[in-house]
Amino acid sequence: MEFFSFGNIIVYIDKFIKFINSIFFVILIIGLSFALIISPVDYLQGDSVRIMYVHVPSAWIGLSIFSLIAVSTILNFLFKIKNLFLFTKSLAPIGLLFTCLSIVTGSIWGKPTWGTWWAWDARLTSMLVLMLFYVLFILTLKYFKNNENLTKILSILSIVGIINIPIIKYSVEWWSTLHQPASIKFLGTSSIHTSMLIPLFLMLLVLLLYCALIFLMKYKTEIIKIKKQNIKRL
């Protein structure tokens, strides 16, 4: 458990931040070149398909982060692991940002393809519900920070919120929606060509590196806050 001490974690955080800073801009330029120049035009949607390269990774990140937060919050409630609490606190704003970005870019993509900025269909509405759960989670962290029931409230929010994740995933199959069904299947054959998959995964990598950078900076801030309190007590 010594490995997970704040002292060791902060040393690795500094190393990771340096590593990400050294490779980020190269991967960003490669990702953008593929997304905006090299990838082919869709035979139906034309160049508007390029919005997919920011919309889809944003949605994936928004969903994955909420799942991670929910599992960590429940584990923290059960086993009282302080690192997990800092982990969820540092991840929540990133998840909210990417959920909002997926809604906004989806709306911009909707106008040329569906003819409308917004529709109250199952996929869009369930993503909006996810955004509300993120907002509730962050507000709870902010306004109940000194409350002894904080982990209990966060666990309830997580349990209720995680029910929404499969609803988002399968909404396009369960209901008739404007949103198209998934083109990328991790278990099965994807209906998307490699020439579009490469830029998609490159942009996912760019956004994941960005998330890691923000997460590490936030986590380091939280550790410093705790150490600051300890110094005051000396």
Binding site: L36, G46, D47, S48, R50, I51, V54, H55, S58, L101, V104, T105, I108, W109, K111, P112
Partner: peptide, 13 residues
């Protein structure tokens, strides 16, 4: 013809 939509999406992100 989709410049406004594509560029505004990337710009927002």
């Amino acid at each position: 013809g989709y410049g406004f939509y594509v560029w505004s999406s990337f710009l927002v992100v």
